[in-house]
Amino acid sequence: MNKLIELKGVYKGFKVRTGILTKKFVWVLKDINLFILKGEVLGILGESGCGKSTLGSVVLGLNTPERGKVEWYGGKKKIQAVFQDPYSSLNPRYTVKKTLLEPYFLCVAKDEKRGIERAKSLLLKVGLKEEVLSFYPHMLSGGQRQRVALARALITEPELVVLDEPTSALDTTVQAQILNLLKSFKEEFKLSYLLITHSVPVVMSLADRIAVMYMGRFVEITHKDEFLSPPHHPYTELLIDSTLEVARIPKRIKELGEPASLISGEIKGCVFAHRCPYAEERCKKLQPELVNVTEKKQIACFKC
């Protein structure tokens, strides 16, 4: 399969205000290497503050990295995005029609008749009725708005869609519907997704490959079919063990530390060492590199 986009050695940092007058430069992404194949779903799994949304914005081209390269293979760059909060990502003064036609006019053609036709057929596909075209966002429920956001992303016929926590603001029953929609669209339109989430179940329902991120670094990149079986990076193990689901008793958690913040300064050694139940002396001195543990699994840990 062909690569669609590739990030090579990407570093991204920001100036962060630390006091009234003091500012500090903080690396948010460190040595990120990734690619997404055509028709593939790459899941980025990580908790708040790990840099996963920044990674999304670099892929979208909304942020330029300080170091490294973002390469898009093939002609015109066709990327779209769906964000977490459908309340703030839709313009409250735009009707659904205007919301859908604006990107169509900009990216596809300035043809109102065909645009409306396409908008109507997409609305049906996402499970809404044609009448919605004249609605404003406040007339729709959270799930319905996320469907509109999805239709807006698809109207320009993108090749890659960045999904930044697309279901975490939604109720359980609505989440299931949206995940099913995303899955069927991927097959129907041969889409690639960059799926950003903190939830292991969500990433398992959609992704083909999963990259686990901690404090701006990838600590594991694994194909979905091997993700739940060991060996794991200790952080991946913690994420899996912390997952709660109906009628499953989670393992006892071995770790009790609090996550460090990126702002607190550069960490010497492995990014996860301060919370890791298996950490040794060398872990506090050196950052391990990602190595192939099996054909489908890369882990950055001395123990693996």
């Binding site: 029953t173 299931a176 519907q177 398992m204 329902s205 899996i240 109906v246």
Partner: peptide, 23 residues
């Protein structure tokens, strides 16, 4: 039943939940 079928887990994908109507 719908709530249980829609909740996902490590090995539990969302079922294509039968549901009437979005509106």
């Amino acid at each position: 039943k719908l709530l249980i079928d829609s909740s996902i887990g490590l090995n539990k994908r969302p079922k294509s939940c039968q549901e009437n109507l979005i509106f």
